[in-house]
Amino acid sequence: MFEVGRVAVKIAGRDSGRKCVVVDVIDDVFVLIDGDVRRKKINAKHLDPTGEVLDIKKGATHEEVEAEFKKLGLPVWNKKAKKVLSKPTKQRKVKEKEEEKPKKAAKTEKKEEPKVEVPKAEPKVEEKVPLEEKKEDVKKS
């Protein structure tokens, strides 16, 4: 009934209403589908054929189907990435805290350096004072 490359609409199950393409015909009952659905073997009764036929090989990979679907402007089903378990991340946080402590010590050392510059500025003021005194001396004279 279905040939490889036939675009169809799935009419049963949680992917029903989505478009797919027949990738492989297993026997007169079952076909392998891919596209905007989970790639799996299904009963051909769960498909409603459309007029379109894609140029794909028998047993085409998901990437090949994705490229053909993009030409038609159709979306493609992709697996969601699994979330990383919370326990290993907690262990990493403990390691980061240990690394941060030496960094804080390094920052405090840097802060001490500008303090040294401040006393340097003070003697400059002292130098100005004698100049003014000299000027006053000149006026007095």
Binding site: V9, I11, A12, R14, S16, G17, D48
Partner: peptide
């Protein structure tokens, strides 16, 4: 409810008829 369009609102036979009608 069933995890399909119209799940928990329509029976499987009626939802299939509507999905086919929309697709065609």
């Amino acid at each position: 409810r069933p995890e399909r369009p119209f799940g928990g609102k329509l029976c499987s036979a009626c939802s299939r008829k509507i999905i086919v009608a929309i697709a065609r």
